[in-house]
Design a binder for these strands. Structure first.
Length: 423
RNA sequence: GGAUAGUUGGCAGAGUGGUCGAAUGCACUGGUCUUGAAAACCAGCGUACCGCAAGGUACCGGGGGUUCGAAUCCCUCACUGUCCGCCA
C-alpha cells in the first residue's frame, strides 16, 4: 500500500510512472487526496471537540472536589451535548479512514523507472540468456512421461489421495526433492541468509500484512473452522515475522531463507501449461527474504538475482533472466526479475523464480520500520525471491538430463542424492 | 475439551473511576567526573495523526458499552499462562 505522504508529495511523478502499468492513477490518487483532505478536516474538528470535552471533564472533577455541585451539573449538561456531536464526527472519521484504506488497497505499487512498457509477458525484457540448450536424443520425452517411466512421480496416485495437482514422489523422485531442498537451503545459508522454518498456516492478520488478503482470498486454501490460511508461499509467514516491528538500522539488512511447501488453489488457471509439474496445488519452495535500508534495496535486489543465477549455474541448467514489463509486474512490486529455465522436451521456458523489490509497499502495510539512532522510524524496504521453486526445476532436470541410459543427476546434487543417475 | 488466572511502554513491573501517556527498576542515548573504562551523578528516552509553531488528539490485547470523566467498571472476541483430560 502506498504511503499517503508520498501520494501527496509526488502525485504527478506517480501518475507518469503508473502509465507503464497501464494504470490510470490520476483518478485514484485524486480520490485518495480528496478523502484525506476530508479526513484531516474531520479530525481537526473532532480533536477540538475532544479537547474541550477533556477540559470540561477536568473542571467537573475539580468542582465536585470543591463541593460546587450545581456548577458541576451545569457543565455536565454541556459535556453531554459535546459528546453527541463528537460521536458523529468520530463515526465520520472512521468511515473516511476505511474509505482511504480501501482506496489505497486498489492502487498498485509504483514501478521503478527502468520497468519497460508492455502489456504481457511477451514484452518482458530478456536481459541475459546463459547456458547451452542441450541436444536431446531422438526418443526424448517430456517429464511427465519420464516420471512415469522411472516411477519417480505418480500423478494419478495423488489424484486418488487428494486430487489433481498433488503428486506423490516415489523413491529416487522423493530423494531428489529432499536433495534440492537441502542444496538450496545450504546455498542460502552460505550466502548469509538465516534459515527459518515458519508455520504453514497463517492467521488473517498475516494474510493482510503481505497483501494476499483481502483481494487474493480465493487463491488460498482456508481452514474455516479455525480461520487459518494455508500459505501460498513462505513469503507470507517469513515477511510477517517483521509485522509491527521497528528494527535498528545497524541490523539491516535482515536476511531470512526458508523451505516450505506451498499451497495454491490456482482457481481459474486451466488450459495449457498445467501438465505434469508445470502447475501444482502443492509444491516445495525455498524462499529468500530481505529487509533492507531504502538506499540499499536495489543493490540487494541484484545480489539476490546473482544468488539465484548461481544456483542455476551449479545445476547446469540453461536459463534466462527477464525484467518484467509494466503489464506483467505484480501488484505489490516495484521491480521484478523472473528467472526461467529451458525445458528442452517441452521446448519452452519455465518460470522458476521471481525476485522482487517491493520498496516500502509491503512495509507500509506491515508497519515494518527501522530507526537510525534517535531519529523518527521510517519504512524499510522488503524484497523476496524464490531460490528456488522445485517442480519446474525438476521438470527441466528430468527433461534436459535424459539419456538413453537414464536421467543424469548434476554433479552438485550427488552428495545430496547419493546416486548419480535415475534409471 | 473442562477449570482457573492473566494481557500495561524495548524488557520487568506498579497502578482498580479524575491532575495517568501512565510510578519504579533494567536497557538505551547524551553529559559530568576519569589518562581510559567502570561506578556514581545529571538529563533525555513509546507510536501515530493534525498543526508553520505553540500545542492538540488518539492509543494500557481487539471491538463495543456505562460515565461529565475509563488502564481502572460492564459486555464480547482473541491470545497467553497454569492444572486436569486426550495425544504425536
Amino acid at each position: 500500500m502506498l504511503e499517503l505522504s508520498r501520494i501527496r508529495e509526488q502525485k504527478e511523478d506517480i501518475i507518469v510512472k503508473m502509465r507503464v502499468r497501464n494504470f490510470d492513477a490520476e483518478t485514484a490518487l485524486n480520490n485518495v487526496i480528496k478523502l484525506d483532505e476530508a479526513r484531516k478536516n474531520t479530525q481537526q474538528r473532532l480533536d477540538n471537540d475532544l479537547a474541550e470535552a477533556n477540559k470540561i471533564a477536568k473542571s467537573v472533577g475539580l468542582l465536585f472536589k470543591e463541593g460546587k455541585k450545581e456548577d458541576a451539573n451545569a457543565l455536565k449538561a454541556k459535556a453531554s451535548n459535546l459528546k453527541r456531536s463528537s460521536q458523529e464526527l468520530k463515526s465520520k472519521l472512521t468511515e473516511l479512514e476505511d474509505a482511504i484504506r480501501n482506496a489505497l488497497y486498489l492502487i498498485p505499487n509504483v514501478p521503478n523507472a527502468i520497468v519497460p512498457e508492455g502489456n504481457s509477458d511477451e514484452n518482458n525484457e530478456i536481459i541475459l540468456e546463459e547456458g547451452a540448450i542441450p541436444k536431446l536424443h531422438a526418443e526424448a520425452i517430456p517429464h511427465w512421461e519420464l516420471a512415469k517411466q522411472y516411477n519417480i512421480i505418480d500423478f494419478e496416485l495423488g489424484v486418488k489421495i487428494t486430487g489433481a495437482g498433488f503428486p506423490v514422489y516415489n523413491g529416487k523422485g522423493a530423494r531428489l526433492q529432499r536433495a534440492l531442498i537441502n542444496f538450496f537451503i545450504d546455498e542460502a545459508v552460505e550466502n548469509g541468509f538465516e534459515e527459518v522454518i515458519p508455520p504453514l498456516l497463517v492467521n488473517q492478520a498475516s494474510g493482510h500484512g503481505t497483501g494476499q488478503l483481502p483481494d487474493k482470498e480465493g487463491q488460498m486454501y482456508h481452514c474455516e473452522v479455525d480461520d487459518f490460511y494455508l500459505i501460498p508461499t513462505a513469503e507470507v509467514p517469513i515477511t510477517n515475522i517483521f509485522r509491527d516491528v521497528i528494527i535498528h538500522a545497524s541490523d539491516l539488512p535482515v536476511k531470512k531463507a526458508g523451505y516450505t511447501p506451498c499451497f495454491r488453489r490456482e482457481a481459474g488457471s486451466y488450459g495449457s501449461d498445467v501438465r505434469g509439474l508445470n502447475r501444482l496445488h502443492q509444491f516445495d519452495k525455498v524462499e529468500i527474504v530481505q529487509v533492507a535500508h531504502p538506499d540499499k534495496s536495489y543493490e540487494i535486489l541484484d545480489e539476490m538475482v546473482e544468488h539465484v543465477k548461481g544456483l542455476l549455474r551449479k545445476l547446469e541448467l540453461p536459463f534466462r533472466v527477464a525484467k518484467l514489463c509494466g503489464g506483467d509486474l505484480g501488484f505489490t512490486s516495484a521491480l521484478t526479475f523472473d528467472l526461467e529455465v529451458y525445458s528442452t522436451a517441452q521446448q519452452k521456458w519455465l518460470e522458476v523464480s521471481s525476485i522482487s523489490n517491493f520498496e516500502s509497499f509491503q512495509a507500509n502495510r506491515l508497519k515494518l520500520r527501522f530507526r537510525e539512532g534517535n531519529e523518527k522510524p521510517q519504512l524499510a524496504h522488503t524484497l523476496n525471491g524464490s531460490a528456488l521453486a522445485l517442480p519446474r526445476i525438476v521438470a527441466a532436470l528430468l527433461e534436459n538430463n535424459q539419456t538413453p541410459e537414464g536421467i543424469v543427476i548434476p554433479e552438485v546434487l550427488r552428495k545430496y542424492t547419493g546416486f548419480d543417475i535415475i534409471n
